[in-house]
């Protein structure tokens, strides 16, 4: 039952991602990507990561993608000129990447007998997750918090500079 659900979710995620990367309008792309993230969150849940599944929805779909939407709508981006998304010249790299994917898929399927075993049932209880996060990985948490602070300062600086620059450009 769970495996059927997993394959359905995997198909949903792959299809939504494919639609996402081929949209011309960034708003449509973000909506499809949110769809893919919901499917991924359920896959995480099936693989025994309920906290990660919740954060995938809250942080990725809820915060990061909404930030994308905010920026797209603030800038009033137009979908761009009509015509195919990829020019003819760009199909060669697409084919190359697809061949690479096929080769790596073949390697995974033929040269990795250990991976044929099923993923065992696993459940990361939030209590043990939090205990491991703040004991063994306490330093990493501190470093990441510093990084978020620096990123906020950097984003604020970039935003302030562009606002200060505009009167200059106008004059």
């Amino acid at each position: 039952m769970a495996s059927v659900l997993f394959y359905v979710l995997a198909a949903t995620a792959l299809l939504a991602t494919l639609l996402c990367i081929t949209r011309r309008n960034p708003v449509h792309a973000v909506i499809f990507l949110i769809n893919a993230f919901f499917a991924l969150a359920l896959m995480f849940y099936l693989l025994g990561a309920p906290l990660i599944a919740a954060w995938e929805v809250i942080v990725y779909a809820g915060a990061i993608m909404v930030l994308f939407l905010f920026v797209i709508m603030t800038l009033e981006l137009s979908p761009g000129p009509k015509g195919p998304v990829l020019s003819r010249r760009q199909w060669a790299p697409v084919l190359l990447l697809f061949l690479l994917l096929l080769v790596s898929a073949g390697l995974i399927l033929t040269y990795d007998p250990a991976g044929r075993a099923g993923v065992p049932q696993f459940y990361a209880a939030p209590r043990s997750f939090g205990a491991a996060l703040f004991s063994r990985y306490g330093l990493a948490v501190e470093i990441v918090s510093f990084q978020l602070l620096f990123a906020a300062a950097g984003a604020y600086y970039l935003g302030r500079r562009s606002k200060a620059r505009q009167p200059e450009d106008a004059s």
């Binding site: 495996s3 394959y7 995997a10 995620a13 790596s104 898929a105 990795d112 099923g118 993923v119």
Partner: peptide, 14 residues
């Protein structure tokens, strides 16, 4: 036991 690890790796690779 849900799905083989290989299949998850394939989805992630795609």
């Amino acid at each position: 036991m849900i799905v083989p690890l290989n299949h998850i790796l394939l989805v992630a690779a795609a």
